[in-house]
């Protein structure tokens, strides 16, 4: 597989656990070495370069703050092993701490901080070295929902301000779509699709991507052949399907419905395939076991021709 990431880009590696996204990140960081292939960072072959010589820094999933050092010494660690003078170290670290809104926390121990604060320290510790690439391994996974949303905004703003490349590993497709400039979707060790979030969402290339990114419906090839004469599976987003009177493109039986607040999701049985439809709040919800007729805009049905098909 091949993955090119541009300078200054916010890039997300998205996939379920065990899909190879973290391994990919560890290869870039240098914690693991490829059995074949190469890692090139800004035009230089880094395949045989140990992690401590790569212009890349990492924010770990468990933050990996050194428990025996206080916050300031944690942030200054990279500068210390580099041999910088104490005064310079101190100044740079305090600047980095104020960058993540933790000025004045330098004297505390990691165990005295909250999860969100530790996460910021991990960020400051990596950024103080002014890396060309920042790797983030599920950095928001341990935070609660509200904090996670706040950090998403902050991270995005930070990346824009600093202009360095962020490579971000996540299993949360919402997180990947909202933050990244581009997304690579991983499954079982392979990249399924690379592209801008909008593109991946609207035009999935494989059934896996269609299902994983935004739970799209995947219509089997024979059904697609019946509809538009092409023998390939196609994706059809639940929110792009409308109920219509008799002359729909497909019809199905209602086998379940769930009220989601802003909308209602209908589960349908269409010739033995299950299909979901998202109804806007205003729409009336058909009864269980009733037959409904479906239609959609011409562009909504997206035929998939990805490598996995």
């Amino acid at each position: 597989m091949n993955l090119d990431i541009a300078e200054g880009e916010f890039f997300a590696l998205l996939g379920p656990s065990g899909s190879g996204k973290t391994t990919c990140l560890r290869l870039i960081a240098g914690f693991e070495q490829p059995t074949s292939g190469s890692v090139v960072i800004f035009g230089e072959d880094a395949t045989r370069v140990p992690p401590y010589r790569r212009p890349v820094n990492t924010v770990f999933q468990d933050y990996a703050l050194f428990p025996h050092l206080n916050i300031l010494d944690n942030v200054a660690y990279g500068l210390m092993v580099r041999g910088e003078k104490k005064a310079a170290r101190r100044q740079a670290s305090e600047e980095a701490l104020s960058l993540v809104a933790l000025a004045g926390f330098g004297g505390r121990k990691p165990s005295e901080l909250s999860g969100g604060q530790r996460q910021r320290v991990a960020l400051a510790r990596a950024l103080v070295l002014k890396p060309k690439v920042l790797l983030l391994d599920e950095p928001l996974g341990a935070l609660d929902l509200k904090l996670r949303e706040q950090m998403q905004t902050e991270l995005k703003a930070l990346q824009r301000r600093l202009g360095i490349t962020f490579i971000f590993v996540t299993h949360d497709q919402g997180e990947a779509l909202s933050m990244a400039d581009r997304v690579a979707v991983f499954d079982r060790g392979h990249i399924q699709q690379i592209g801008a979030p909008q593109n991946v969402y609207d035009r999935p290339e494989t059934p896996f991507v269609a299902d994983f990114v935004g739970s799209s419906n995947v219509l089997p090839a024979h059904l697609v052949a019946q509809l538009i004469g092409e023998t390939a599976p196609a994706s059809l987003r639940p929110e792009q399907i409308h109920l219509t009177s008799a002359d729909g493109k497909l019809s199905g039986k209602v086998i379940g419905s769930a009220f989601l607040g802003a909308a209602t999701r209908l589960e349908l049985d269409v010739e033995g395939n299950s299909l979901s439809v998202l109804l806007p709040k205003a729409a009336s919800v058909p009864e269980l076991d009733s037959t409904v007729h479906l239609t959609w805009d011409k562009d909504a049905l997206h035929v998939m021709r990805g490598p996995d098909v």
Binding site: G30, Q33, R48, P50, P51, Y52
Partner: peptide, 9 residues
């Protein structure tokens, strides 16, 4: 530093 590199490789 060279020994360290060897450990990593």
């Amino acid at each position: 530093s060279r020994i360290s590199d060897a450990f990593w490789r």
